[in-house]
């Protein structure tokens, strides 16, 4: 994807006396991780296509503090949260959309007590609204009939009860979805949550991401879809371990939608 994206930055937009309707919270993974950056770009393509009035914080964004909090560093989390809330409140942000279930969870659930009260959407919920409102349409549906399985990110599914939005998007694309044996509330973690993304696993007999990838591969998919940059990394690695990268792609639901516009 090398097309020109329109990415308004909050400071500039506000300087022009405008107030964007949505803040797109990119998140640290979405900003820096090479794989996650593609998801960020895909989502912005959708936002542009649907003419959504949004802006990003850019260099004023900082880690949500999620990883620090799950690791037990409540100090660091609250410092991050309070600092971010100051920025968000200064811009009078009301609605936030993010591609990361971890940012989604902490902004939606843990920021309000610290003074940050916003309406927060995961990008799958947001895209679903755009579709219901008729703001985006499928033009070249290259995925129709493809075999897809969806991996529920823990912080979207169990943590916040969002199971249907990503599945509705897959239905919208007319793909052939097969559920894994463990799905929705019984879904198995990809292995990255709880700050595990940033450390080696404790001694065991298997890596969690490999076990989860085996769950996915059992459905014989062409695409493993998910809605979290960390799950994406873990499952992509898992597919490599199982030497299936020639046959199976790991894609974010937003990437599937963006490629079909």
């Amino acid at each position: 994807m090398s097309e020109q994206l329109i990415v308004p930055v909050m400071a500039d937009v506000v300087a022009q006396g405008k107030q964007p309707e949505y803040l797109f919270w990119v998140g640290s993974a979405g900003s820096f991780d090479d794989r996650a950056k593609k998801i960020t770009r895909a989502f912005v393509k959708i936002l542009n296509k649907a003419n959504v009035d949004f802006a990003v914080l850019g260099i004023e964004e900082s880690s949500s503090g999620d990883a620090a909090k799950r690791a037990g560093n409540e100090f660091l989390f609250q410092m991050q949260a309070v600092t971010n809330i100051e920025v968000l409140n200064a811009y009078e942000v009301k609605k936030i959309v993010t591609c990361c279930p971890h940012s989604y969870n902490t902004l939606k659930n843990e920021y309000p007590e610290l003074g940050g009260k916003y309406e927060v959407f995961h990008h799958t919920q947001f895209i679903q609204q755009l579709i219901s409102a008729g703001k985006i349409k499928v033009a070249n549906n290259t995925f129709k009939g493809k075999k897809v399985t969806f991996h529920d990110p823990c912080y979207l599914g169990r943590a916040n009860g969002v199971y249907e939005a990503p599945r509705d998007l897959l239905n919208f694309l007319g793909v052939n979805t097969t559920e894994m044996k463990r799905h929705k509330s019984t879904s198995l973690c990809c292995g990255a949550g709880g700050a595990q993304m940033f450390k080696d696993a404790e001694p065991g007999d298997k890596e969690i991401n490999v076990l989860r990838t085996e769950d996915a591969l059992a459905t014989q998919p062409e695409i493993i879809a998910t809605g979290c940059p960390f799950c994406n990394t873990m499952l992509t690695d898992g597919v490599k371990v199982k030497e299936q990268e020639a046959n199976v792609q790991v894609l974010d639901v937003a990437e599937l939608i963006a490629a079909s516009l």
Partner: peptide, 20 residues
């Protein structure tokens, strides 16, 4: 990871000025 968050606002050692 936590040191990175403290120093440059991300769990990885990237510069906050490169966020865009």
């Amino acid at each position: 990871m936590m040191q990175n968050v403290e120093n440059n606002g991300a769990p990885w050692p990237y510069n906050q000025m490169d966020r865009l």
